[in-house]
Amino acid sequence: MATAPKLEHRSLGKGLSVSAIGLGCMSLSGIYGEADDAVSEDLIRHAIDNGVDHLDSSDMYGWGHNEEVLGRALKGRRDKVVLATKFGQIQRPGQSNGVNGRPDYVAQACEASLKRLGIDVIDLYYQHRVDPAVPVEDTIGAMAKLVQQGKVRFLGMSEAAPDRIRRAHQVHPIAAVQTEYSLLYREEAEATRKLTTELGIGFVAYAPLGRGFLAGAIKSFSDIDGRRSAHPRFQQQNFDQNRALVVKIEAIAREKSCTPAQVTLAWLLAQGQDVVAIPGTRHAARFDENLGAVHVKLSAEETARISAAIPAGAAAGTRYPTGGMAGVFI
């Protein structure tokens, strides 16, 4: 097997180094259309062979399916990756997802993920969604025990607001915070980064392409199907305003002789050395396109121009439907 190319790496907290662009694995479990497990496993191996060593999963992606796919793909390659997964969302048949941050559930969820992944230790273990009914100190305390037991190496939080992150970090060092962050949705992420930068916590940007909007492939309202149709940003009353923002990025991409996705990801990485991105895809060609962003260099002036083209707060529609918004940035 050829040696994987060496990509730029960045630190998440103290002691954890990952490729600046990783692979978000959610779409490999049918979230944005049917996925073929064999193709998904090949994509994961393709990512590793091309120098990507940051793989991000969750126990709620396909309710265990995603971790099983990842586990199969990593046989013989476990030592080549930083493997991140999450816990905290639970199924409630006939209702929206629930959350569970109780200490006993933390241990139970970790054991189940280790088994599905077929591994002995998780590199980066996130609380996927905050449980407001459980003090964060109790949840993080239980996660810290997993570190002491050698089942987890580093801890992370997803969609937690700054005050809760600070409280958690006082219990056990938090290596990474994961929040949606893109040119379309910046305000909450940038508020969070003020704290994570202060505390030396890495920032993992998920949905960095605005769930595909910023990749430029969604050009008309008729292009929207599946899960995206439930998201306000893609709905009729918001579509035209958001599409007009993407057109601005397409123009800049043409000037830079790259794709809209590449200039979008390059802008994100230019925000600071603490930021890494985990764009997701089911397709090797799209993965290759995303990874090409590491070769797009932006000057400080170009970065500022892109920021001004889509100012913070310019997007129409919230980033989740009403029910989902109740569970983020809390």
Score class of each variant (00 low, 15 high):
Arg164Tyr: 08
Asp138Val: 02
Arg153Gly: 00
Arg164Thr: 15
Arg166Met: 08
Lys145Leu: 05
Arg186Ser: 08
Leu155Ser: 14
His169Leu: 04
His169Lys: 08
Tyr126Asn: 05
Ser158Leu: 07
Gln178Phe: 05
Arg166Trp: 06
Ile165Gln: 11
Thr139Met: 05
Val147Met: 08
Asp131His: 03
Gly150Met: 03
Tyr181Arg: 09
Gln178Gly: 07
His172Ile: 01
Pro135Glu: 12
Arg166Leu: 14
Ala175Lys: 12
Gly150Leu: 04
Gln170Lys: 15
Ser158Asp: 09
Ile174Ser: 13
Tyr181Val: 07
Tyr181Ile: 00
Val134Arg: 11
Lys145Asn: 11
Glu188Tyr: 12
Pro173Tyr: 13
Arg167Ile: 08
Thr179Glu: 14
Leu146Ser: 01
Val134Tyr: 12
Ala176Glu: 08
Val152His: 09
Pro173Ser: 14
Arg153Ala: 02
Tyr185Val: 14
Gly150Val: 00
Val147Asp: 10
His172Met: 13
Pro132Leu: 00
Ala175Ser: 15
Phe154Met: 06
Ala175Thr: 12
Glu159Gly: 03
His128Gly: 01
His172Leu: 04
His128Asp: 06
Tyr185Cys: 13
Leu183His: 07
Val130Pro: 10
Leu155Tyr: 12
Gly150Thr: 03
Thr179Asp: 13
Glu159His: 06
Val152Glu: 09
Ile165Lys: 11
Ala142His: 04
Ser182Met: 11
Arg129Ser: 02
Lys151Leu: 00
Phe154Arg: 12
Arg153Cys: 01
Arg166Asn: 07
Leu146Arg: 06
Gln148Val: 02
Ile165Val: 15
Val136Pro: 02
Arg166Lys: 13
Ala176Thr: 09
Ala175Arg: 11
Gln170Ser: 12
Gln149Ala: 14
Asp131Cys: 03
Glu137Ala: 05
Lys145Asp: 06
Asp163Arg: 15
Ile165Thr: 15
Leu184Tyr: 13
Pro162Ala: 12
Ile174Thr: 12
Met157Lys: 09
Thr179Trp: 08
Gly141Lys: 12
Ser182Lys: 02
Thr179His: 11
Arg186Gly: 06
Gln149Ile: 01
Gly156Arg: 07
Thr139Gly: 02
Val177Leu: 06
Gln170Asn: 14
Arg186Val: 03
Gly141Leu: 13
Tyr126Lys: 10
Tyr126Asp: 02
Ala168Ser: 13
Pro173Asn: 12
Ala133Val: 08
Ala142Asp: 01
Val171Gly: 03
Arg153Trp: 06
Gln149Asp: 15
Glu159Leu: 03
Leu155Gln: 14
His172Cys: 11
Val130Trp: 14
Tyr181Asp: 07
Thr139Lys: 08
Arg129Phe: 07
Gln127Asn: 11
Glu188Cys: 04
Gly156Asn: 10
Val136Lys: 06
Gln149Glu: 15
Glu137Met: 04
Gly141His: 09
Gly141Trp: 10
Gln178Asn: 12
Gln127Trp: 08
Ala161Gly: 14
Ala144Val: 02
Tyr181Gly: 01
Pro162Cys: 06
